[in-house]
Computed example of a mutant assay.
Amino acid sequence: MTRPTPAELEAARDRVVEDVVADGLSVLFCGINPGLMSGATGHHFARPGNRFWPVLHLSGFTPRRLLPSEQRELLDYGLGITNVVARTTARADEVSDEEFREGGRLLAAKVERLEPRWLAVVGVTAYRTAFGERAARIGPQERTIGGARVWVLPNPSGLNAHWTAQTMAEEFAELRKAAGRPRGPSSP
């Protein structure tokens, strides 16, 4: 994949990256909102420093590390990806609290329609704002949406220095176990 130019990245502002979803998923991962690299490529978690794809593999959700361009393969594992806010921005702080709250309402309707067993929101601050859960912490939540249980995971952005890929993978693995997903066959 050729890296987008600065002009191509700027042109990707406010685009929407298509969800990778199906009915009845085991886990629907939910990002905060897509970045410009995702908008330019059409692939979720596309920025090279984002740790989503390595952590997904390290945690045992996938048998190998997928590339962002292979995102549709997640459906084969009963997994999907959406976002709290659909539009692309350079930084998550460009999204207003009202936009997060509206995104939470739209996400709840999507989850009720798709009926995943688990909704995994990657980013505790986005979850708190979108759902008005100011005391939420990383891990399983009391809240359910439709029939889906909710788990908040650490934000895999390279800017989130509080979590290493290994400690994130441990948290993702806890969700994998709770969701009853077997460890990927060639995962370490």
Rank of each mutant, 00 (worst) to 15 (best):
R65G: 01
G103C: 10
A86Y: 08
M37W: 15
S157T: 14
A22L: 10
L159P: 00
A46F: 10
P156V: 04
F52P: 00
L114G: 01
A92E: 10
W151A: 08
T89I: 00
A120F: 03
A40E: 06
F52N: 00
T129K: 15
L74V: 06
V150T: 05
A130N: 08
T41E: 05
E142F: 06
G35M: 11
V55F: 00
L159C: 08
E171N: 12
R72H: 14
R47T: 06
P34E: 02
T5R: 07
M168P: 03
P4M: 08
G123L: 06
E115K: 14
S186D: 14
R72C: 05
H57V: 01
L175W: 13
H43A: 05
E70Y: 09
R134M: 06
A126Q: 08
H43C: 09
A161T: 15
G158H: 12
P188M: 07
G132R: 08
A86C: 05
V124A: 13
S96D: 07
R117L: 13
D23Q: 13
G60F: 03
E142Q: 05
E171V: 11
S187Y: 04
R3P: 00
T5L: 01
Y77S: 10
I145H: 06
L25K: 04
T167H: 12
M1E: 12
L56H: 11
A126R: 02
R149W: 00
A169D: 04
Q71A: 13
V111K: 00
A126G: 14
P156C: 06
L119Y: 07
F172D: 10
L67C: 04
N83H: 11
A90H: 08
G103R: 03
P63H: 07
A173L: 03
I138G: 04
A169V: 06
A126V: 12
A179N: 11
V27Y: 08
M37V: 15
V55I: 15
V27G: 02
I32S: 02
P34M: 08
A179K: 07
G42T: 07
P156K: 10
S69M: 13
A148W: 15
N33F: 09
R13K: 15
R87L: 12
A126S: 15
T144L: 09
L107E: 04
L107G: 01
L66V: 10
L119P: 01
P48H: 11
I138M: 04
Y127W: 13
G158E: 10
M168D: 04
L175Q: 03
L79T: 02
E142P: 01
E112K: 13
V111H: 01
T62Q: 06
D93L: 04
L66Q: 13
P6K: 10
G49T: 14
L114N: 02
N33A: 09
V111N: 02
R128Y: 09
G35T: 08
I81C: 07
H43E: 09
A109L: 12
G139Q: 13
E102L: 12
F61R: 04
